[in-house]
């Protein structure tokens, strides 16, 4: 892609990603409802919710919150764009981490016990998923010899064959980042088990809407990263990403919230070992190939 197509592509990505993300969330709610024997809202419900949030009056506690939500949005959008432009995965990860840090700082910026407790819990979650994401990037490098997303598309074989365990760690990451049970410790995605919504306690109205929107982008980003494991044709990647999302929804419905210690233990005791084992096998294979 070159010349005038690139800006068009960027604009397209920025506009279409939330549509896809919102629909996926709607699907999520529908499937969750059916699993619980309810009819559930229409698939377009998240869009109505968003419109409603944006039409509410703005109430904030400190001005830092504004900066926080917009920086969060910007950096996640930026990382989606970088993914779609085939950019450096590691830089993408840094930018994404900036977004998480920004939201956490927004929660810290109000002297509120609930929001700050949520912020600490989000930090602990970050401690669990951030290494997994970074190790995923390292795995991609070891398999392809490049950090650039666009170089993955040059591979003849799907990455899944060399990095099978990372499909599992990506599920963990997805569940943690999307605040799904049993990892919904900083706030719950579908507020089915809480009155005070952790890190989001002090955000309301349009600003909560921005955060919701950012979540949609984030979903697209994470599913896109999972889809990198199967870039040889579109359907392979889509099936892989959607089935991992389905597993996350299933987990969300059948489990309850666990403690942050447990989440940390899963991230470090299950996720990191899986990732490291996969890295080791890739290294061994490379070593054997000379």
């Amino acid at each position: 892609m070159s010349g005038w197509l690139t800006p068009l592509w960027v604009v397209g990505v920025i506009l279409l990603s939330p549509v896809v993300g919102g629909l996926l969330i709607g699907l999520d709610r529908k499937i969750s409802a059916r699993m619980q024997g309810r009819v559930g809202p229409p698939i377009t419900q998240p869009f109505y919710d968003l419109v409603k949030l944006f039409s509410k009056s703005t109430i904030v506690s400190t001005k830092m919150q504004l900066v926080s939500v917009y920086l969060y949005l910007t950096s996640v959008v930026l990382s989606v764009v970088m993914l779609m432009l085939g950019q450096d995965l590691l830089v993408l990860l840094f930018v994404l981490a900036l977004g998480s840090v920004s939201l956490i700082l927004g929660a810290f910026s109000v002297r509120s016990p609930y929001s700050q407790l949520g912020a600490y819990r989000e930090l602990l979650l970050l401690l669990s998923y951030e290494p997994l994401l970074a190790l995923f990037v390292v795995g991609v490098y070891l398999a392809t010899g490049s950090f650039m997303v666009r170089d993955i598309f040059k591979m003849e074989q799907p990455l899944l064959l060399t990095l099978p365990l990372f499909a599992l760690t990506q599920i963990l990451v997805l569940a943690m980042k999307m605040n799904k049970s049993p990892f919904d410790i900083s706030a719950s995605h579908h507020a089915h088990q809480e009155i005070v919504r952790g890190i989001l306690t002090e955000f309301s109205g349009p600003y909560l809407g921005v955060i919701e929107l950012t979540h949609w982008y984030e979903l697209v980003l994470l599913l896109g990263m999972t889809a990198l494991l199967w870039t040889n044709n579109l359907w392979g990647g889509a099936v892989l990403a959607l089935s991992s999302y389905f597993i996350v929804i299933l987990l969300d419905s059948v489990t309850a919230r666990m403690t942050w210690r447990w989440a940390l233990r899963v991230g470090w005791g299950v996720g990191i070992p899986l990732a490291v084992i996969n890295l080791m096998t890739v290294c061994l294979e490379r070593f054997r190939a000379g």
């Binding site: 904030v60 400190t62 840090v101 700082l105 810290f108 109000v110």
Partner: peptide
């Protein structure tokens, strides 16, 4: 992040 959070934490 924890440290910056402390510096920013302000009463509305």
């Amino acid at each position: 992040t924890k440290w910056v959070g402390k510096l920013l934490s302000i009463s509305p």
